[in-house]
Design a protein around this nucleic acid. Structure first.
Lengths: 201, 201
DNA sequence: CTATACCCTTAAACTAGGTTAAGAAATCAG
DNA sequence: CTGATTTCTTAACCTAGTTTAAGGGTATAG
């Protein structure tokens, strides 16, 4: 019965993997054995800075944010993760060092989680996952590079517009303070931008 | 004889891979078959925007820069690659779409290059390279994330100091205009920063 | 050896975005 | 339903970094 429950709960992840590379029965069973569901209430932390990030999370439902608190106490959002996104502090996860980042639920959230040890074991038992996680990482990398490009050469207004385009499902789901923090500006300035845009059309 | 020449020329790359995961004889031979040496004179382009990036380059000697030219005509350096670094436009390479970036030699440079087709073939013939390139990508990703964090919360002076720390071998090897372009500031402002630092000590 | 291109610096005027403060609106826990 | 917390907006003032312009320094190709 618990086996059956897992079968059900891992389905979104199996679908996700299956779209990248078709999985064999044994590989599906491995996924079911290694990933475990976990829920977070809104405002609950999935990772606190100072702790080692021992988990690689796939979001089934809800929304998490990965963010840094700098020396001045300001918050900076690296990434939001909604349905079918991955979230973790990769640096802490791989180097096994205390994290400088936090992960917090912006909504009640359900994730499928694999631990560091289990992921290594998964790579050994089914090398196909080396490839799957390579592809997954490539996608994350491309997104990050796009972001660096924008931080370099776009104004805050342009970045806001492109955020709205890229994450239309997010903008009425999370507060503007969070969006500002993702764009690298203050909420006050975002407010000014929004007013400007409104007067334009 | 040409075989022998390749054996010699691939040695830095074999060393690099060997440090990540030991390679078997067949795997070494595959590397020698798939990677080919290529030289660029200073100022020569290894990639021009608009073309598809069909190559993944390992720098044996010299220095390349990966940069973007924005709408205003300003240049922004994503990455420098010196000895033992990788350089390519990953987005163009994987999505097979025209690149928005350029790669240019800042010094006379020797790379070992693998094409897209040969890399896919390498993954198939030796799945160990799925793992190697996963690890390699993880490292790049971590560096990029660090960079985003800095662009968010550090002043230009702080970023300059941390550049000097992180790339001590680069700062007297490339012009300050390039460093400014990497830091996301104008050469004039970098000059001001350097003057300030000098008066401090 | 020389001319040309590139590189570095200075300084004055300017602008994108930050800071501070304060009130209004929305959301939420009890 | 109600008080409390969070969120959004406005506005006046401030600052890090840009722009423009100009002069001097330094490689480098021919």
């Amino acid at each position: 019965m618990s086996n059956n429950a897992n079968l059900t709960s891992c389905q979104p992840l199996l679908d996700y993997f299956g779209k990248l590379i078709p999985l064999k029965r044994e590989e599906k069973e491995l996924v079911e054995a290694k990933f475990h569901p976990l829920t977070f209430a809104k405002k609950q932390f999935a990772l606190q800075q100072g702790k080692i990030c021992d988990h690689f999370d796939f979001v089934v439902k809800g929304c998490l944010r990965l963010f840094k608190v700098d020396e001045k106490g300001d918050y900076h959002v690296f990434q939001f993760a909604t349905e079918n996104y991955w979230i973790l502090d990769l640096t802490s996860f791989h180097k096994r060092i205390p994290s400088t980042l936090n992960i917090e639920a912006l909504e009640d959230t359900l994730v499928l989680r694999i631990t560091h040890r289990d992921l290594l074991d998964l790579y050994i038992k089914a090398p196909k996952f080396d490839r799957i996680f390579r592809v997954l990482l490539e996608n994350h990398f491309m997104q990050q590079q796009e972001r660096i490009g924008q931080l370099f050469s776009s104004t805050a207004e342009e970045r806001y517009l492109s955020f709205l385009e890229q994450y239309p499902h997010l903008f009425n789901r999370i507060p503007n303070t969070q969006i500002a923090s993702y764009l690298g500006i203050t909420p006050e300035f975002l407010s000014k931008i929004r007013k400007n845009l409104q007067s334009k059309g």
